[in-house]
Amino acid sequence: MEKSRKGFVPVMLMPFQNDGQVDYQALTKLTELYLAAGASGLFANCLSSEMFELTPAEMLKTIRHVVDLVAGAVPVVATGTFGGPIGQQADFVKQVHDAGTEAVIAITGLLATATQPDAYFNDQMFQLLELTPGIPLGFYECPVPYKRVLAPEQLKAFVETGRVIYHKDTCLDLGQVRQKIAATTSYKFGLYDAYMGHAVDSLKAGAAGLSCIQGNFYPELIVWLCQHYDDASRADEVRAVAQFFVHNMDVMHHVYPIVAKYSLKQRGIDISTFTRRKVGNFSSETRKNIEKLDLDYAQLHKSLAYTG
Rank of each mutant, 00 (worst) to 15 (best):
L47D: 02
G87L: 00
A73Q: 13
R276G: 11
D294G: 10
V76K: 15
G280A: 04
V259C: 12
T62P: 05
N45W: 09
F16T: 01
K94G: 00
V96Y: 06
Q95V: 01
V144A: 12
G83D: 06
D173G: 14
K204Q: 08
F52V: 00
E153V: 08
K180A: 08
L155S: 04
P75A: 11
K61L: 03
F282C: 09
Q17C: 12
I213Y: 14
R267S: 14
H247T: 07
D19M: 07
G268S: 13
V11R: 05
T286C: 09
G84C: 06
L30F: 07
H97D: 00
N18A: 15
A114T: 10
G72Q: 08
M1R: 14
R64H: 04
H228Y: 12
D296N: 15
G197A: 12
T62I: 02
D19I: 06
M59R: 15
M12I: 00
D250M: 15
F139K: 02
M12E: 04
P219T: 10
S40M: 11
I165R: 11
K180E: 00
Y34M: 10
L191V: 06
Q17H: 13
V177R: 11
R287A: 09
D91C: 02
V149F: 01
L221V: 03
D169P: 14
L129R: 03
T115Q: 09
Y146E: 11
I165H: 04
L110H: 09
Y192V: 02
S284Q: 11
T28P: 07
T286I: 13
T132Y: 01
A99M: 08
M51E: 04
S283W: 14
E285Q: 10
D123E: 07
G83K: 14
V9P: 02
P56S: 06
R5K: 15
A151C: 05
A298L: 10
K265M: 10
R178S: 06
D236Y: 14
P145A: 07
V200K: 15
T307W: 02
R277F: 00
P133I: 05
T62R: 09
T31H: 08
I290P: 05
E130A: 15
A119N: 07
G268L: 03
P10C: 09
A106C: 07
V76W: 05
V159K: 01
V70I: 07
L54Y: 12
F121C: 07
L295G: 11
V104M: 02
A298W: 14
M252K: 09
I107R: 00
G175H: 13
A183T: 02
F244N: 12
H228N: 14
A260H: 13
S40V: 13
V246I: 14
T307N: 08
F139V: 01
V76D: 02
F16M: 04
A36S: 14
M249K: 10
